[in-house]
Amino acid sequence: QEPLTASMLAKAPPQEQKQMLGERLYHLIYPLHPSLAGKITGMLLEIDNSEVLLLLESPASLRSKIEEAVTVLQAHQAPE
């Protein structure tokens, strides 16, 4: 699968851009957190597209962002 670039994204409508980023993110997150992949992807899609692109290019950054998202998610879902 070819890397997603800013110019590729720029050609798509905004809604489609998130979809493209989401597909990439989901397939990277799924092997790490199969049960939470959809939620984590949803959280990361709230980030700026340009920042998501950087994450997709940097596995280490993405991994740390995923762990951050998991922590937030678990705290959010934890009963009080």
């Binding site: 809604q15 979809q19 993110l25 397939h27 959809g38």
Partner: peptide, 26 residues
């Protein structure tokens, strides 16, 4: 205490058009 948005975050499903926060029912 209000019923906080327990459904956050919206969930992404591959192949399904992403609607972002609109995925969450009001």
């Amino acid at each position: 205490s209000n019923g906080s948005s327990i459904s956050w975050p919206p969930e992404f499903h591959p192949g399904v058009p992403w609607k972002g926060l609109q995925n969450i029912d009001p």
